[in-house]
Simulated scan of single mutants.
Amino acid sequence: MNMFSYDMFEKEGKYHLCGGGVNLSNYESNYNTQSEAWNNEAVTFSENKTLTNKMINSSNNYSYGNEVEYIIYGNSNEKNKKSAYGTIFAIRYALNLPPEFQENWNDGTLSGMAIAIESASSGIIPAPLFKLVVVLGLTAAETASDMQYLKNGMPVELVKNKDQLTWTYAGYSEKAVSGKGFFYSDYLKLILFTKLTGNNEYAVYARIADVIQANMG
């Protein structure tokens, strides 16, 4: 992972150079201020180098920004990234369900709306069913928001409490990025680990060799 690039490699690197204060509203301007530092070998080379002891960038890496995803999935760059996004979305969705239920299930406004809809539909739409659909929808919105953070190089709390949710029945509220939590690259590490503990271990090693060979060439 340390010697290969991945989709959010550069954004995560610039996030760390910023040292905090980055959110969805200002990440572009913050990252732009770090572009010169990111390309400065003296600043980033100690943690940003390939197996051939060169900086990880588009000049030295044959498939810059796609290598780890290829190692994990072995398809085209587009398919590999879609697979990574889909897997991470599923993980985040499962982790967001408990706090969303905790925050919203007993919300007075939601409960009142559910009872009103049950009454208006003569019981065809039970109040619990309406509440379930709403909470599942809010979980999807929360997970989509998490993906925006991850796709822009920022971390997301692995397990949130209800106070850390951005989407609730009361509305949307952007939360400050704490600097803790999991980055996109951390999820790739988890996915890679599961691949190596399964039946596709040799295929993963073979694709690592492919990437090394391409970069050496």
Rank of each mutant, 00 (worst) to 15 (best):
K189D: 07
E103W: 01
S173H: 11
I117E: 04
T87Q: 09
N106G: 05
T50N: 15
N106T: 10
L129R: 02
H16L: 13
S35C: 01
W38R: 08
I72S: 05
I212T: 02
E47M: 09
S29R: 06
T197C: 12
N161F: 03
D163G: 15
N32G: 07
K49D: 00
Q213C: 09
N61M: 13
E201V: 05
E69I: 04
Y70A: 03
F4D: 04
L158H: 13
G112M: 03
F4G: 00
I115V: 11
I124A: 15
A127E: 06
L97D: 02
F183A: 06
S5N: 05
L97W: 02
N200W: 01
N32R: 12
G21I: 09
K79I: 14
V22Y: 04
K180A: 15
L192E: 02
G20C: 10
N26W: 09
M147V: 11
E78P: 02
S35G: 00
I72F: 06
K11E: 12
V134A: 13
A94N: 13
S5M: 13
S76H: 11
H16T: 02
K151I: 01
M154V: 11
N26Y: 07
E118N: 11
N39E: 08
A206L: 10
G112S: 13
Q213Y: 13
Y62W: 13
Y184D: 07
L97I: 14
N75D: 14
P128F: 12
Y27H: 05
G108S: 11
P98R: 12
G153A: 15
S119K: 12
L132D: 05
E36V: 12
V68N: 05
V22F: 00
P98D: 15
F4A: 07
A84V: 05
S83V: 04
N80K: 07
N75V: 05
N53Q: 15
N106P: 00
N40D: 13
T44N: 00
Y70L: 08
L196G: 04
G153D: 09
A209N: 10
K180N: 14
A144I: 11
G217A: 15
T50D: 14
V159W: 00
S185M: 10
E142K: 09
N53E: 15
D186V: 08
Y205E: 02
F9R: 04
R207E: 07
R92C: 04
M154Y: 06
M3E: 12
N60K: 06
I91N: 10
S35T: 04
I115Q: 09
L196W: 06
L132S: 10
S29P: 01
H16Q: 15
A120T: 12
W167R: 02
I191Q: 02
S63F: 11
S76G: 13
Y187H: 07
N30V: 08
F89M: 08
K49L: 09
E157Q: 02
F130I: 14
Y73L: 01
Y6I: 08
C18H: 04
M216L: 15
I208S: 02
A206R: 11
D146T: 01
N30G: 07
Q102F: 00
K189T: 09
E28V: 15
A116Q: 11
N60S: 14
S178M: 10
I124H: 07
M1I: 11
G13N: 08
L138D: 01
F9P: 00
L136V: 13
K14R: 09
V68W: 03
S59K: 12
Y172S: 13
